[in-house]
Amino acid sequence: MELRHRIDGPDDAPLLVLGPSLGTTTHLWDPQIPELARTWRVLRYDLPGHGASPAATEPFGVADVADAVLALAGPGRFAVGGVSFGGAVALSIAVNHPGRVSELVLCCTSARFGDPATWRQRAARVRAEGMGWLAGMVTARWFTHGAESAVAEPMQSSLLGTDAESYALACDALATYDLRDHLPRVTARTLVIAGDRDPATPIEHAELLGEGIPGARLAVVPEAAHLANVERPAVVAGLMSRFLGHGRGMKARREVLGEEYVDRALASGAASGLTADFQEFITRYAWGDIWIRPGLDRRTRSVITLTALVARGHLDELALHVRAALRVGLTPDEIAEVLLQTAVYCGVPAANAAFGVASRVLREMDAQSDDKE
């Protein structure tokens, strides 16, 4: 399956993949790109027969689209999200490939889109009559009655430009899609966004996602129907930006502190709700504004951090940053030199405690290395 796509944002930023709803294209996410692409490398794709993607020539399922998206994303972990059908694709990836997904954004989507017979009936009518009859019915579900024509008409045009057979095959795919029993398999931090006037995926669908996915956060957008990100673009951009944090900050944090530690910290914050905002704060400001500045390399920043932690007696944090120092290229001998320097300027008792922490960390890391061998 070939999916045409486009990429916005810095080449060195972490990857964020965003999928469209049925009947729309990559342009669905245009309102959020200026904010997200500042610190994320954003990949958007068109569904089969939508936008620039070739028409589908054979039946496909949501999982098939998910596999094609994984191929576009390449190796490694990434954040993924989508609206409606695109949200189903994102959820399918998170369920079946949990190790690949760092963050998950589900906007106006569901684990099951209603009665399968309804989707098969829609597919049959599209095959018989084409796309024209859909315009009024679908766009009435996409937007509230107060939506401006300048907002709704471009989306209607993209719907009418969709290949009819590809649209029908996508309806068939939604008829067989059901991940309700698999939601606990999602391990990624998850944000569920719902429109309070969405008739296609009502709030009950979002609540099911929020309750079924461990630690998921639910946000309801007021005065919005199914395409909430188009109808209330600033609200959705703000929700996503706060949840995803600073993209390059998250990348730096993972590279310095390690994937496992960051995953545990984020999961703990999401599960308890107590530290979630704090995790976003330190990702955005400490790692996104300070650690990525070009004025000092990471080795130098690590030396400064070790010294400051010894001076203030933050021994738990010191253990974390001894590991980080090794990860950014400091040797055990260089760490010892840093701690020896602190004995002069921070005091012998502080340095003594720091040497104890560093020695324990190095022993633990040596033991882990031996176990792997």
Rank of each mutant, 00 (worst) to 15 (best):
231 E>I: 06
198 D>T: 06
231 E>S: 05
184 P>D: 10
210 G>A: 02
177 Y>L: 07
162 T>W: 02
208 L>M: 13
165 E>T: 14
233 P>A: 04
204 E>C: 09
176 T>N: 10
208 L>Y: 07
214 P>F: 09
195 G>C: 08
222 P>Y: 14
227 L>M: 14
166 S>A: 15
198 D>K: 05
185 R>W: 08
224 A>K: 13
179 L>A: 14
239 L>D: 07
174 L>F: 00
231 E>P: 08
181 D>E: 13
244 L>C: 01
172 D>A: 11
229 N>P: 00
195 G>H: 06
183 L>K: 08
201 T>G: 05
204 E>I: 09
226 H>Y: 14
191 L>F: 06
228 A>K: 06
168 A>C: 07
227 L>P: 04
195 G>M: 02
182 H>L: 12
245 G>M: 00
240 M>R: 02
200 A>F: 04
178 D>C: 06
172 D>T: 10
178 D>G: 04
212 G>D: 03
241 S>D: 15
223 E>A: 15
246 H>K: 04
168 A>L: 05
174 L>S: 00
191 L>Y: 01
249 G>Q: 02
188 A>N: 04
233 P>W: 09
157 S>T: 15
190 T>Y: 05
209 L>Q: 02
177 Y>V: 04
178 D>I: 09
235 V>K: 10
229 N>V: 10
189 R>D: 04
160 L>S: 08
249 G>W: 02
235 V>M: 13
159 L>E: 03
230 V>C: 12
164 A>V: 06
248 R>D: 04
188 A>E: 05
235 V>W: 10
162 T>F: 05
181 D>P: 05
183 L>N: 08
171 C>D: 12
225 A>N: 11
208 L>A: 15
196 D>M: 11
246 H>S: 11
240 M>P: 00
171 C>M: 06
194 A>W: 03
178 D>W: 09
163 D>G: 12
188 A>C: 03
230 V>K: 09
183 L>F: 12
181 D>H: 13
247 G>T: 01
247 G>V: 07
195 G>I: 04
194 A>L: 02
180 R>F: 12
241 S>P: 07
241 S>K: 15
220 V>I: 15
183 L>I: 10
216 A>L: 09
188 A>K: 05
180 R>T: 15
187 T>G: 02
211 E>C: 09
204 E>Y: 00
174 L>M: 15
245 G>E: 01
229 N>Y: 03
187 T>S: 09
198 D>I: 06
187 T>V: 06
182 H>P: 02
248 R>A: 12
178 D>Q: 09
164 A>C: 07
187 T>F: 03
